[in-house]
Amino acid sequence: MELDWEFFIKTFFVCLRAVPVALNIVAVTLIISLPVGFLFAFLRIKGNITVKRLISMYVSVIRGTPIVVQILVLYSMLPSLLAVFFERINSPLNVYDVNPIYYAYTVFSLYTIAILSEVFRSALLTVPKDQLDAAESIGLTTVQAYRRIIIPQAMVAALPNICNATVNLIKASSLAFLMTVKEITAVAKIEAAFGYNYIEAYLVIWVIYILICIVVEQIFKILENRLKIYKSAA
């Protein structure tokens, strides 16, 4: 079968305009997920037994179900629950007018928090416990010890896995079209629908996501090189 290269090139540049939408989803998700994921990791190490079990249950549920199912359930269920809630409090807000990208933020953040909490937990456990004890013995508080000693070393171990999680998130963001978000995949499918050029459209999606992931991997390599100064202390 001969490819329609004219359609491929035209669709490629059309889809490039949707790249900021995909990157916006990824950026907002990481802004939410990185601190919350670290907090969950810390609580799984230092928290009480109840907190540890609740977080472990959350992580198991999220990691044990396909993200497609999470999208379909939350995107179908959350608006309905919110509609009932606002109706009961006599609010004029119509949840069905909410920009669907906010649902994308919610779904991908819940998913990424679970992934990153495991990344940070394993990274924190690579730092010997006696380093914290030594830091506290010379007068540092627990917060100071973590900020100056523990976290920099843990980040060295965590960064490759954070890179993997980010790349996986970028690829998963292509599923935002299920929530009617007009990102790369949605735009490509719309373009393909007119002439049934789905093969060319999927190739466009493939090329764009490869390019984005290559750039992201290079950025993380630069970060890894800068954090190498902490390896000797790890």
Rank of each mutant, 00 (worst) to 15 (best):
K10F: 00
V14Y: 04
V14L: 06
A18Y: 00
A18R: 00
V21K: 15
V26K: 00
V28A: 12
S33P: 07
L34V: 15
G37N: 04
F40G: 00
N48G: 15
I49N: 15
R53D: 10
I55M: 02
V61I: 15
G64V: 02
Q70N: 14
I71N: 01
L74T: 13
S76F: 06
S76R: 03
M77W: 08
L81V: 13
F86N: 15
E87T: 07
S91G: 07
S91Y: 01
D97I: 01
N99V: 01
F108H: 04
L110D: 10
T112F: 01
A114I: 02
V119F: 01
V119K: 01
V119L: 05
R121H: 11
R121L: 08
R121Q: 13
S122R: 01
L125A: 06
P128W: 01
D130K: 07
D130L: 01
Q131A: 06
L132T: 15
D133F: 06
D133C: 05
E136M: 12
S137L: 02
I138Y: 02
G139K: 04
T141I: 06
V143F: 10
Y146N: 15
I149G: 06
I149C: 10
I149V: 15
L159V: 15
T166E: 03
T166S: 04
T166P: 00
A172D: 15
L175I: 08
T180A: 14
V181Q: 03
I184K: 01
K189E: 05
A193Q: 11
A193T: 06
A193M: 09
Y196M: 11
N197F: 03
Y198C: 11
I199M: 10
C213L: 03
E217C: 02
I219R: 11
K221A: 10
I222Y: 10
N225L: 00
Y230W: 08
Y230A: 12
K231F: 03
K231Q: 14
S232M: 06
A233T: 14
